[in-house]
């Protein structure tokens, strides 16, 4: 997954995110344990695992909003602390709760965030985003009256309004009908073509099978990876359900999905 990468010296842009031996502890509970992985531009990485596996914590760490207890996350050659606020301009986050203000209209929501990101030509960017979300004719309606699918489309445009390099999705397919899922998958593919780094946490294995470039299966805060030719659902079942997540089968990768290759430190800890 590693690629040759020269970070832009004058901006916080980057083409690779490296998570090195990261653990995150909340009191006595360990949410993540010795996680290491690398995400590169032009890839869609899937975080899979049961509830409480640490997917959302890992997304929070990648988003810079959660600091690791140990280990570090590097964006290009800088940590979040070194890059400061400018790095956050390169991160987009779409969570299950859509980060919208339901009392505001679709346009007002986007205008607010365009202002927060100090975007050039905000009115034009907002107009484009509304068109892209298919909400141009509902732009001045309050979000409260929107369906889940409409809100989701708006929230996606909000997360992408500032053209971030790293785009994080937490359960993006939940509550969407089939057409909306297909539209979201197409958008994810377009983002991959635009060389974004896309990390998504999901339970919808059928939807993402064939979409992901790499799948990372988490259980109890640790990476469980598989590497044979079965479908994603079979791999997931083998890692989480059948084997309790404790074993890693041997064999070459195959099919539409390859499995993320953690660095050595993680292999030692997860073995």
């Amino acid at each position: 997954m590693r690629s040759s990468h020269v970070p832009h010296p004058d901006t916080a842009d980057f083409e690779q995110v490296t998570v090195s031996d990261v653990s995150r502890v909340y009191g006595r509970r360990r949410a993540l344990a010795h996680v290491s992985l690398t995400c590169s531009a032009g890839q869609i990485i899937g975080l899979l695992g049961p509830n409480g596996a640490g997917k959302s914590t890992l997304l929070g760490l990648l988003s810079t909003l959660i600091e690791p207890s140990t280990g570090e996350v590097r964006y290009g050659d800088r940590t979040a602390r070194e890059a400061g606020a400018a790095l956050r301009a390169q991160v987009g986050f779409l969570s299950h709760d859509l980060q919208l203000y339901p009392e505001l209209s679709a346009r007002e929501n986007l205008e607010f965030f365009a202002g927060m990101y100090s975007l050039d030509r905000p009115a034009e960017r907002v107009g484009e985003a509304l068109t892209s979300a298919g909400l141009a004719d509902r732009a001045d309606d309050v979000v409260e009256g929107f369906s889940r699918g409409m809100r989701q489309r708006l929230a996606l445009e909000r997360a992408l309004l500032h053209s971030p390099r790293l785009v994080l999705f937490d359960e993006p397919f939940t509550g969407l009908d089939e057409a909306a899922c297909v539209a979201l998958v197409m958008r994810l593919r377009a983002l991959r073509t635009a060389r974004r780094i896309i990390v998504l946490a999901t339970h919808d294995l059928d939807v993402v099978d064939g979409l992901l470039d790499h799948a990372i299966i988490l259980r109890r805060g640790r990476i469980r990876e598989l590497g044979d030719g079965r479908s994603l659902r079979e791999r997931y079942r083998a890692a989480i359900v059948d084997r309790g997540g404790g074993r890693r089968p041997a064999g070459p990768d195959g099919g539409g999905v390859t499995v993320a290759r953690p660095v050595k430190a993680a292999e030692e800890h997860t073995a």
Binding site: S95, P102, Y117, S118
Partner: peptide, 15 residues
């Protein structure tokens, strides 16, 4: 807090 809008605010590259 509702709708996780706080995360959106905190992610913005502002002071």
């Amino acid at each position: 807090r509702n709708h996780d809008a706080l995360r959106g605010l905190l992610l913005a590259p502002v002071d």
